[in-house]
Computed example of a mutant assay.
Amino acid sequence: MVPLLAGLHEVMPWVKQWHGEYDDEWGDVPADELEAEHENQLRKHQVGIEELKGWRPVKKTRGRKPAKQTVLDVE
């Protein structure tokens, strides 16, 4: 859940910018509802803002794994 919540936290300023006004079709301010749900999920999963800011994806290695070296018995 932390990666999803971190991603939402990262884009929240743009959500507020683009959807920060009352929308007749939505029936409310979409940014306010999304922010309230985000905060609800943070409490539910006991995740703090500092943890979201510090989260980074795991770096994956590219390419093939090195082949296992075998030792040959030479007499």
Rank of each mutant, 00 (worst) to 15 (best):
K53R: 06
E75N: 07
R62L: 01
L72W: 14
H45G: 03
G48C: 10
K59R: 12
V47F: 02
G27C: 06
E50H: 12
L4H: 07
R43I: 10
D73E: 10
E25H: 15
R62K: 09
L52G: 05
G48M: 13
K16C: 02
D32A: 01
V11E: 13
L34K: 04
R56N: 13
V29G: 00
L52Q: 11
L72M: 12
V15E: 02
K60G: 05
E21H: 14
W18E: 00
W18F: 12
D73A: 14
L52A: 00
V47E: 00
K44S: 07
L34A: 09
R64L: 08
P30R: 08
P30N: 06
H9E: 06
G63K: 01
I49G: 06
W26G: 00
M1H: 14
D73T: 15
V2Y: 11
E75R: 11
V2W: 05
V71D: 00
L72V: 13
D24Y: 09
P57L: 04
A67K: 15
V74Y: 12
Q17M: 02
W26D: 06
K16F: 13
H19Y: 15
Q69S: 10
L8K: 01
W14T: 03
V47I: 14
V47P: 02
P13H: 01
D73H: 10
N40R: 08
E39P: 02
V11G: 09
G7M: 11
Q41G: 04
W26F: 12
E50V: 00
W55M: 00
V29K: 09
K68T: 07
L42F: 09
D24Q: 10
Q46S: 04
H45Q: 07
V74A: 04
A36D: 14
M1D: 07
V29Q: 11
D24S: 09
V11C: 10
V2N: 02
V11R: 04
T61A: 02
V58R: 14
H45R: 01
N40F: 11
K44A: 11
T61F: 15
R56V: 14
E39I: 09
Q69C: 07
K53Y: 10
V47S: 03
H45T: 01
E33K: 08
P57N: 01
Q17I: 05
N40E: 08
D24K: 02
V74K: 05
D73F: 15
Q17R: 15
T70A: 05
M12N: 06
P66Q: 13
G48A: 06
V2H: 14
D32K: 06
L8F: 14
Q41D: 03
V71I: 15
